[in-house]
Every structure is written in C-alpha cells, then in structure tokens.
C-alpha cells in the first residue's frame, strides 16, 4: 500500500503519483486494475485511405471532365459510383453482426441502385429483367442454405427469408404491367418467392407468427 502525505490517505495502486493531488506516493505498489491496451481500431487507417482515395478520384474526374468538355458529360457516373460504393460498404459493415439481415439489406440496395443506374443509362430494363429477379432468388436460396448450414436459430433467418420472398413478388408487377421485356427470370423469381413463402409457413407457421408478434408489438 502506498501513502500520500499531501492528502494523508493510503492508496492501493501501481501509480507513482496520488490520483487526487498528483503528489509523489511512497510505499509498495499494488495492482487492482489491469492496464487496458488502447482499443484504437487498426481498420480505421484502411478506411481513411479508402475514403481519401475514392473522394480524390471523384474530384479528379470532375476536374478532368471540365477540362475536356468535348469528351461529353461523364463525371457524374464516377461521383454516383463512389456514393453507391460507400452506401453499400457502410450498410454492409453496420450489419456485419447478423449475416441474414445483412443479406436482406444488400438485396434492397442492389435493387435500388440497379434501377437508378438503368434509368440513368438510357433504360434498357436490364435492372428489372435480370438484376432484381436474380438478386432476390439468390438471396432466398442463400438464406435457406445458410440457416441450415450454420444452424442459426429460426428466429434469426426466417423473418429475413419472409422479407426477401415478399420483395421477390414485386417482379410480378413488372410482368403484369408489361414493363419487363425478358419475362423468364421475373416469373422464376416470383415462383421461387411463393414457394419459399409456402414452405416457411407450412414448416414454421407458428414461429413466423410469434416472430411477427414480437417484432411488431406496440
């Protein structure tokens, strides 16, 4: 035990100075708390470099585009690309703790972005013909497989399959309104979604209902 003559108290510590008055302590050291290492995240440097690089790239492309007006307007693609990249990356990192929720989240953003890009690049309807149906189908299958392989508790992934399957029925609207030109994938996606819905309700109906009651309690 150490002693501070200034405060006239005993101090159990490994410190050289009194925590109250910073006067030097006399006596024997004692360690009641471990020395905790800095929790400074080593990944932060990587993200700082990535952020600087992408923003510099976007700014440089705007500058070059303005210098070469004869090359047409293209810098907004770069800027938009950088924004999409960061939204996808940040949402993926924020949901890294739950793989199923991360998948649902990525499906949503991929579908939204593909629609935006398709619209910006003279609408060839590749987003609703290919990207949206494929993403939904892959996600539903991936969630089903992951749930079984990783032995996730049903409450962790059934809700996610449900969300994805409901989302996967949207291409039906594209089909019925005649927006989609290549109908095979859209219809397959709708079929897979409905089969997924039927399956989880048949096998896990009670679980799904109790999940929804929990998630939606007011």
């Amino acid at each position: 035990m150490k002693y501070c003559e200034n405060c006239r108290v005993s101090v159990r510590t490994g410190r050289e100075t009194c925590p109250l008055c910073q006067a030097p302590l006399k006596g024997e050291s004692e360690h009641l708390f471990p020395e905790i290492k800095s929790v400074y995240n080593q990944f932060i440097l990587f993200f700082k470099i990535l952020l600087t690089a992408t923003i510099s790239g976007a700014i440089a492309s705007v500058a070059i585009n303005l210098m070469l007006p004869e090359s047409g307007l293209w810098c907004h693609y770069v800027v938009l690309g950088v924004i999409c990249f960061w939204i996808l990356l940040i949402t993926a990192i924020r949901r890294r703790t739950s793989i199923p929720r991360g998948i649902v989240n990525q499906v949503f953003w991929i579908c939204v972005f593909s629609g935006i890009w398709d619209a910006l690049t003279a609408w060839h309807s590749w987003s609703i013909d290919f990207v949206i149906p494929c993403t939904c189908m892959i996600a539903i299958l991936a969630l089903g497989v992951l749930g079984k392989v990783l032995h996730l508790p049903p409450s962790d992934y059934l809700g996610c399959i449900l969300a994805d399957a409901v989302f996967g029925i949207v291409p039906l609207i594209f089909y019925l309104t005649g927006v989609s030109q290549f109908v095979y994938l859209s219809l397959s996606c709708v079929a897979v979604s409905i089969i997924a819905l039927v399956t989880i309700f048949t096998f896990h109906g009670k679980q799904i209902r109790s999940d929804l009651a929990r998630r939606f309690h007011v």
């Binding site: 035990m1 501070c4 405060c7 108290v9 005993s10 101090v11 159990r12 510590t13 410190r15 050289e16 100075t17 009194c18 925590p19 109250l20 910073q22 009641l32 708390f33 020395e35």
Partner: peptide, 13 residues
C-alpha cells in the same frame, strides 16, 4: 483509515 483505489494511470491524471 480511508483507502483510495483507482484505475487511472499516471498519464491519465
């Protein structure tokens, strides 16, 4: 007999 204990290190305070 008051005894002081702390988790603060010398560089903290």
């Amino acid at each position: 007999d008051l005894v002081i204990e702390t988790n603060l290190l010398d560089d903290d305070a």
